[in-house]
Simulated assay, not measured.
Amino acid sequence: MKTAAALLLVIATSASAQDAPLFDPVTGYRLTAYRGVVDSVPEGVVRIDARQAAALRGKAVFLDVTPAEGAVRDAEGTWRLAMPHATIPGAHWYPEAGRGIQPAGIGAWFADGVKRLTRGRRDTRVVVFCLADCWMSWNAARRLRRAGYTRINWFSEGLDGWKESGRTLADARPDR
């Protein structure tokens, strides 16, 4: 009897996951299955590769939106990380900022951080990235463009492409 109940639970969970929409019909943000082939570029955003990203270091604000696996963010905004994270040297890490529906407090934290880093100038060049085949950076780039930022570069190869091109990474902590 327990086996039958467990099987029904697995089937119900699988069916509900399959029925969940991939994209929000209103905002266009990806909501689930964040790791997968990303075959389009958000409108008004320019896709760049590792060579172009390296050339922009020091000339743009780099934003890493890779999730913090197993981490917890408390009400004051302090992160307790389950594992270390490495990013492109000089990048600012905003875990969870690329989710289609952002957890409480993340949206404002990301928006305020970008505003601070760009000194309120929406024409500042910004490079957004995550991992290769990651919809979170796509979402974050789209979100910034919709917020009025005009020079958004999406480094779609992300940390994977950076490492594969032989470049080094640096230890990171979520941006404060």
Rank of each mutant, 00 (worst) to 15 (best):
E157A: 13
V126N: 01
A108V: 00
D175C: 05
D160Y: 12
R143Y: 02
S137L: 00
Q52M: 05
A33E: 13
D64K: 01
E157T: 01
R176M: 07
D19S: 13
L63P: 11
W79V: 08
Y94N: 03
A71Y: 10
L159T: 11
W154M: 03
V72P: 09
D24Q: 02
R142L: 12
W93I: 07
V46H: 07
W154E: 02
W162M: 09
I48Y: 03
V26C: 14
R151I: 00
E164L: 15
G161N: 04
G77D: 10
L81M: 08
R47P: 03
A17W: 13
V65R: 02
T3H: 15
P84R: 08
A17R: 06
G148K: 07
A170Q: 10
A97R: 00
R143G: 10
S14F: 09
A141P: 06
R146S: 15
A172M: 04
L7P: 14
T78W: 11
P174L: 09
L131D: 10
W162N: 11
E96D: 04
W138H: 05
E164V: 07
E76H: 13
R47E: 12
W154R: 02
A20P: 07
K2L: 15
T118E: 12
R51K: 13
G105P: 08
E43G: 02
A12Y: 00
G98H: 04
V38D: 04
P89V: 07
D39G: 06
A71V: 06
G148Q: 09
W138V: 01
T27A: 08
G120R: 05
D64Q: 09
L7N: 01
P95F: 00
F62H: 12
A170E: 11
R125F: 06
A54E: 14
A170M: 05
A60N: 05
F23G: 05
A4P: 14
R176C: 03
A54D: 08
I11G: 01
P25V: 11
P89R: 01
D74W: 07
G120A: 14
M1G: 15
L56I: 07
T168M: 01
L117H: 05
H92D: 12
A140L: 00
R173M: 10
Y29W: 13
A50F: 00
G105A: 09
R145G: 03
K163E: 14
L63V: 04
D49Y: 06
G77M: 04
